[in-house]
Design a binder for these strands. Structure first.
Lengths: 165, 165
DNA sequence: ATTGAAATAAAAGACTA
DNA sequence: TAGTCTTTTATTTCAAT
């Protein structure tokens, strides 16, 4: 099911779809230099093998009334694997938590939280996140503004930065 | 150009496209309960007014060989607005920096950095980020794994959590 | 595995209500 | 502003190389 290796065209397809997920297949095919049918087959294969996990419209949070974005650093009392998994499962059911990453070092998790306003965020923090089982510490940092929001991964780098030339 | 107010159908459209950005207009129209042409007109209006900023394929970073995701907390020497903007402009030209948020408090910026491997990240950190003008401090936290990655904003919440009922 | 052509389906536009 | 009809364009399948 999973393709063994991606060739250069596959990577170009991923790069283009990462930038413009609604590009038509004929445009995509033209840009990567093959005809439409094989291009579509490659896209389907990339989807089925999991290299493409989904497609999403990027919305303007502020314009839609979500004016509060906060990063929360969460420390847990127990770092047993089952407790880490339980915490992840819990945040998966918290709509305001948009991203959750497990970190090394002192802090156990970093969460990206999006709320309509300060009241909504405060209610979430004091009634849902802080009182959650096993949560030992929560430190929050409010975002002032977003300076860059690039999707996904940095294709188009030198695969290995040449060390000496 | 910008629509004055979004009605319930517009919000449903945004919610659906945020979850599945390649849904066909016919499917979308059916799900929100209107016919295809007005649905497409709404989508175009949402795009042109900036509520929809773009569409992106979500790719599997690890499967594609990007095994290092790091959050970096960056403090600047000068927080004059022109210097803040200059830093944002600089990270916009760093492909490994995928997101940049300005924060309140001690730390000035949080960056999400994606690299293929530790060597690539270390090279970036020591040769590009730390030596950049005005950078006073950089603290990095490596991610162990991703527990949740939801796109965009939490539609489908009670618009105001009822305070008493 | 790609191409080129045919069939199907969706998107875009004109018009009506 | 929504809906119906029509045209255009894209997607998908299939035969052939």
């Amino acid at each position: 099911m999973t393709k063994v290796k991606l060739d250069d065209i596959d990577v170009q397809i991923l790069d283009h779809l990462q930038s413009d997920g609604r590009m038509t297949n004929v445009d995509l095919a033209r840009k990567v230099g093959i005809s439409a049918p094989p291009c579509l087959r490659r896209v389907r294969a990339l989807e089925e093998s999991g290299y493409i996990k989904g497609y999403h419209a990027e919305v303007d949070a502020e314009a839609l009334g979500f004016e509060v974005t906060v990063f929360a650093m969460v420390g847990l009392a127990s770092q047993a694997e089952s407790d880490l998994v339980a915490f992840e499962e819990r945040v998966r059911n918290m709509p305001l938590v948009r991203e959750c990453w497990m970190l090394n070092g002192e802090i156990d998790f970093i969460l990206k939280i999006v709320a309509r306003d300060l009241a909504e965020f405060q209610g979430f923090l004091t009634r849902e996140l802080t009182p959650a089982p096993n949560v030992a510490s929560v430190k929050t940092s409010f975002t002032i503004r977003n300076g860059k929001h690039a999707p996904g991964v940095p294709f188009g780098l030198p695969p290995r930065p040449a060390r000496a030339r």
